[in-house]
Design a protein around this nucleic acid. Structure first.
Length: 609
RNA sequence: GCCCUCAUAGCUCAGUUGGCAGAGCGCGUUCUUGGUAAGAACGAGGUCAUGAGUUCGAAUCUCAUUGAGGGCUCCA
C-alpha cells in the first residue's frame, strides 16, 4: 500500500491561468475593477492584500526579505525571512499598518520590465532574485503601490482602498518553496472577504469547526484518547471500540457478498520481506525496525501487501481461482515524523479495510467496476456524499514505462467516469509502482483527507515472482490491485466523527438507547427494559443515577444517544416506554416489543436516519 | 524532522511586579423521588509535564527534554 495517509490540499484554483497584466502593461485594456466578475474581484482583493501586508512588514522590518504571497482559499498569506520571530503583537501592529495603507488609497500599478532591470530593483532580495532567474520569459511583472514594489504576475485591485474586510489570523513556519532543505520562513496568514459580514461569518465558521473537532468529540463522547505514553497511537475506550468494530463488521459483511477472502498475517517479519517488496529501501525511515536478541533484524509491518504477496506465493494458482481478493484488518505501524501527527487523522498505529486483488490482466477493468460499486454503496450508506475523486499520475520516480503508465491512468480514469464520478487529476502523486484513484473527504476545518483508494501495482508481482497457470498451461504474471474503501479506520473515524458531529446512525452508535427511570422505584423496570434490548442485541444504557429525569435527558442528549426511553409508573404498568429521539422529537408511549422491533429494523437496514 | 506557540485537578480554564494552589463542570456522600435539556448541601481531588539552573524564596525567570497545537508551494 502506498503512502495512503498522505495529506493533500485542494490543488484546484480558478485562477491558475491568471497571466494578464493590467492596462498599464500596454497589452489589451481590461475592464474597470468594479465590472469584473465577483470571484475575480475577490481574488484580486486577496492578492493586493498580500502586497499591502508585505508593505507593512517592510515598514516594521526594513531588513526583511520577502518571498511569495499568493491569494488562497479564505484570504492570503505572505512568506518572509525576518530577523526575529513574530509575536501576536506584531500581527496587530502589521494589521494597523495595513489599514493605514488602505486609508491612503493609493493606486496599484504594474508593467512588464526586462529581467536586468528587475534584478537591479530587487538587489538584496535573494528570494525575488531566485524567482526572476526561474522565470522563462524575457520580461517579468513589476507592481508598485506607494513606496512598495513587488515582483508579481499581476491580478490586482486598482487601489489599496479596495481590499474589503480582512484580518491577520496567525503566523507559522514554512520552508522556502516547501522544501525542507531550504530556509525556514515565517508565513503570515490573513482572512479576507468582500464585506465585514462575510468575514465575521467565516471567523465564526472556524470557531464552529473547533466544536466539531474529532479530538474534542472523542473526549466528550468518551470514544478514545491519545496519550503521551504512545504518541500517535489511539486508546479506544469501550464506546470507540464499538464504533470501530461496527465499521469492520459492516465491511466484513460486504466481503461475503463481494467475494473477498479475509486472512490474518503476521505483525512482525524478517526485514527480508520488505527488502523483497522494496519498502525497506524506500520507506525504511518510516518503519519500526528492531534487532532481536539473536541479532536478526525484524520489522513491524507498515502495510499488508508484502505479506499478502508472500501468502500468494506459498501455493500454485490457476486462472480458475482468480480474481483472488485477500482482505485483512490487521493493525499497521508507521513511524510518522512527530510534527505530522494529528488526532486520529494522522497516526502511527492504525488499521485499514485493506485488500489486495490478484487477477488476470484482462480482469482489471471488471475488478475496478466491482470496487467502485462497493465503494459507492459504502459511502452512500454512511451518508457521505461530498466525495472528491482524484487520479494520481506518474511520479518522478517510477517503475515501468511511460506508455504503461499512460495506458493505466487512462484505464483508471475511464473506469471512474463510467461510474459517473467527476475526477480531478493529481499529476506526479501516484505511488512509484502504479497510478491510483483516491477518494477524499473534508474534515470540519475543510482540510481534505484521502480515505479510500485503489491502486494498480505494476511492480510487486514482479518483485515477488508471482505467477498463475493460465488456460494455456503456461505461467503468467497476475495483475495486482491495492484497495481500501474506508482507508485507515482511524482517519476515517476522525473524518466521520466531524462529519456527523458525533450523531452516529443507530447501527454505529455506541449507546443506542438511554433508559431513563423517572424515580428510583422505576429502576427495576428500567433494568428489565435494558435486558430486553440486550436480548435483541441492542446496546442500551440504563441511567440509574440519582439525578432528576430532566438531567438524565440532558445527559443523553449531550452524549448524542439516538433514543431516550423514559419509564415511569404508566410505562411499567403497560410494559411500554415513552420514546424521545435525539432530534428532540417526543414519539410518545410505545409498547416495548414494538420499540425493539423498530430499533432492530433501523439497525439491520443500517439506516442513516 | 523544521519554525512558532503551548503544558496548572478527570475536563475547560484563572493565577497580578517571583511570596500559603484557585473557579466552574465532572466525581463521591447525603438530602430530594421527579413526566421530556442542568434540584440542593457537603466532601475528596495537585510532584503546577519532566530534569537542571538563577534566587532567601519559582506555577511564575533561564536552559534542556518530552508531549500537544498551528503550519511547512493553494507557488512571482
Amino acid at each position: 500500500m502506498a503512502r495512503a495517509q498522505g495529506v493533500r490540499y485542494d490543488a484546484s484554483h480558478p485562477h491558475a491561468e491568471h497571466t494578464h497584466m493590467t492596462a498599464a502593461s500596454g497589452a489589451r485594456p481590461e475592464p474597470p475593477f468594479a465590472e469584473l466578475p465577483p470571484d475575480e474581484q475577490l481574488f484580486r482583493m486577496r492578492h493586493s492584500a498580500a502586497h499591502v501586508l508585505a508593505e507593512a512588514v517592510l515598514q516594521l522590518f526594513p531588513d526583511a526579505k520577502y518571498a511569495i504571497g499568493p491569494p488562497i482559499e479564505h484570504g492570503f498569506y505572505y512568506d518572509f525571512d525576518l530577523p526575529r520571530p513574530l509575536t501576536p503583537d506584531d500581527l496587530h501592529d502589521l494589521e494597523a499598518r495595513m489599514r493605514a495603507s488602505v486609508a491612503r488609497d493609493v493606486p496599484i500599478t504594474g508593467r512588464q520590465i526586462p529581467k536586468d532591470e528587475a534584478r537591479r530593483l530587487f538587489a538584496g532580495q535573494p528570494y525575488k532574485l531566485e524567482l526572476i532567474d526561474d522565470i522563462a520569459e524575457p520580461t517579468v511583472g513589476h507592481f508598485v503601490h506607494g513606496d512598495f514594489q513587488d515582483l508579481c504576475r499581476g491580478g490586482h485591485t486598482e487601489r489599496t482602498g479596495q481590499l474589503g474586510a480582512f484580518t491577520l489570523t496567525h503566523s507559522a513556519g514554512a520552508y522556502w518553496r516547501g522544501d525542507e532543505r531550504r530556509p525556514m520562513l515565517q508565513r503570515i496568514y490573513g482572512a479576507l472577504f468582500p464585506t465585514p459580514g462575510e468575514l465575521d461569518a467565516y471567523l465564526e465558521a472556524v470557531e464552529e469547526a473547533g466544536r466539531r473537532d474529532h479530538r474534542r468529540l472523542g473526549r466528550e463522547l468518551d470514544l478514545f484518547h491519545l496519550d503521551p505514553i504512545s504518541p500517535g497511537s489511539p486508546f479506544y475506550h469501550q464506546k470507540g471500540a464499538v464504533l470501530y468494530n461496527a465499521l469492520v463488521d459492516y465491511i466484513r459483511d460486504l466481503y461475503l457478498e463481494y467475494g473477498y477472502a479475509e486472512v490474518i498475517t503476521p505483525q512482525i517479519f524478517e526485514t527480508e520481506l520488505f527488502k523483497t517488496s522494496g519498502h525497506y529501501q524506500n520507506f525504511r525511515g518510516d518503519m519500526f525496525i528492531f534487532t532481536a536478541a539473536d541479532e536478526r533484524e525484524l520489522a513491524v509491518k507498515p502495510m499488508n501487501c508484502p505479506g499478502h504477496c508472500w501468502l500468494y506465493r506459498t501455493g500454485l494458482h490457476s486462472y480458475r481461482e482468480l480474481p483472488l481478493r485477500l482482505a485483512e484488518f490487521s493493525r499497521l505501524h508507521r513511524n510518522e515524523r512527530s510534527g505530522v501527527l494529528h488526532g486520529l487523522t494522522r497516526v502511527r498505529s492504525f488499521a485499514q479495510d485493506d485488500s489486495h486483488i490478484f487477477c488476470e490482466p484482462a480482469q482489471v477493468a471488471s475488478e475496478l467496476a466491482l470496487f467502485f460499486a462497493m465503494t459507492r454503496r459504502v459511502y452512500d450508506s454512511l451518508g457521505l456524499t461530498d466525495v472528491a475523486v482524484y487520479i494520481a499520475g506518474r511520479p518522478e520516480r517510477y517503475v515501468g514505462t511511460p506508455e504503461d503508465w499512460s495506458a493505466a491512468e487512462a484505464q483508471l480514469e475511464a473506469a471512474v467516469r463510467a461510474e459517473g464520478w467527476d475526477c480531478g487529476l493529481l499529476p506526479g502523486e501516484g505511488a512509484f509502482y502504479g497510478p491510483k484513484v483516491e477518494f477524499h473527504f473534508k474534515d470540519a476545518l475543510g482540510r481534505s483527507w484521502q480515505v479510500g483508494t485503489i491502486q494498480l501495482d505494476m511492480n510487486m508481482p514482479e518483485r515477488f515472482g508471482l505467477t498463475y497457470i493460465g488456460a494455456d498451461g503456461a505461467e503468467h504474471r497476475p495483475a495486482m490491485l491495492h484497495r481500501a474503501i474506508l482507508g485507515s479506520l482511524e482517519r476515517f473515524l476522525g473524518v466521520y466523527i466531524e462529519h456527523t458531529e458525533g450523531r452516529f446512525p443507530l447501527w454505529l452508535a455506541p449507546v443506542q438507547a438511554a433508559v431513563i427511570p423517572i424515580a428510583d422505584r422505576h429502576l427495576p423496570y428500567a433494568e428489565e427494559v435494558g435486558a430486553a434490548l440486550r436480548a435483541a442485541r441492542l446496546r442500551p444504557a440504563v441511567d440509574g443515577s440519582s439525578q432528576r429525569m430532566q438531567a438524565k435527558i440532558r445527559e443523553a442528549q449531550l452524549q448524542k444517544v439516538p433514543y431516550m426511553l423514559v419509564v415511569g409508573d404508566r410505562e411499567a404498568a403497560e410494559r411500554a416506554v415513552a420514546v424521545r429521539t435525539r432530534a428532540g422529537g417526543d414519539l410518545g408511549a410505545m409498547p416495548l416489543d414494538a420499540l425493539i422491533a423498530r430499533l432492530a429494523a433501523e439497525r439491520d437496514t443500517r439506516a442513516v436516519l
